[in-house]
Design a protein around this nucleic acid. Structure first.
Lengths: 149, 149
DNA sequence: ATGCTTCCCATTGACGCCCATATGGTCCCA
DNA sequence: TGGGACCATATGGGCGTCAATGGGAAGCAT
């Protein structure tokens, strides 16, 4: 019964309005609601120019990684800088929209539209063009981020 | 309910005014208030050109770390010098601002703006450009490592 | 007194909360 | 099977509130 609806799947592109808001696709909101997620945790992807969005569990997964290191080591310090300092909490408004901040725009190159991409246990925000190119590259088995010429 | 919002997360940049004051982001002030922290303890980060800010528990955590090391080791000596010799107490004014002292400016290179960086149990003050560069460097360093489970 | 700090109040710009409209799809029923 | 009512989603915008900032004036110390 819940085999499909409890994961973030497929993708959709929505427009950012004059106030910088964009609607999260209803399917993704349904998954969030089913998981009881109200506070969204956003983090820069480690490989692609995309922002990962998920519930508190997404943050906790990264924190477990940090916890395996000596808390005063440079490694733990660097990871915390990324995970805690680079992460952002967000809430959706009553209509299920989120604000596209400069933090998101700068890292993704997003301008007027956002592509929401399901990643099973979280979803991502992409600049539409960048997403299509990354998908095409992945289809051809090219894993590098370098642009085709 | 607020299981995650009670930690210092994300980052924000605010401007220093003509009197040398800067507003601590409201989210961070909320965390301080929730923890009942009124006196802030500030010390230099062990790795980065940043000032760490937290409640008395921050000092205690560093002291425990020093206690675990051989008291005559160079590392314990260095930490004690930084923690005990370089620490400073601060208070926020009624509007939630703090004074950016020369102690902070000299160590961080902060000029006109301050980037506040969440570190889970404390937060840090960075020169904005230095923060972006350190984050980019940390992300590069993570590329070769495995993703967290 | 002079410089610096602390307290207080004013401004403004951003964000959250609310309601309105459009658009596309689905379901029902004739 | 086609038309139309109905509904959910995406989108637009008004408006109040609050955070960030600026600046005056009163205390404090040197």
């Amino acid at each position: 019964m819940f085999g499909v609806m409890n994961r973030f799947l497929s993708n959709a592109t929505n427009r950012i309005d004059a106030k910088g808001r964009v609607s999260v696709p209803a399917l993704f909101r349904a998954v969030l609601a089913q998981r009881g997620v109200q506070e969204l945790y956003c983090l820069q992807d480690l490989v692609f120019p995309a922002i990962s969005v998920g519930g508190p569990d997404l943050l906790e997964r990264y924190e477990r990684q940090i916890a395996t290191a000596d808390p005063f080591s440079p490694e733990a310090n660097r990871m915390s800088l990324l995970v805690h300092g680079g992460g952002v909490f967000m809430r959706l408004d009553a209509e299920g929209r989120l604000m596209v901040t400069d933090f998101i725009r700068d890292f993704t190159g997003i301008g007027t539209d956002v592509t929401f991409v399901g990643r099973s246990d979280h979803f991502q925000l992409w600049q539409p063009q960048a997403f299509h190119e990354a998908q095409a590259a992945a289809r051809e088995g090219r894993l590098s981020m370098s642009r085709p010429q």
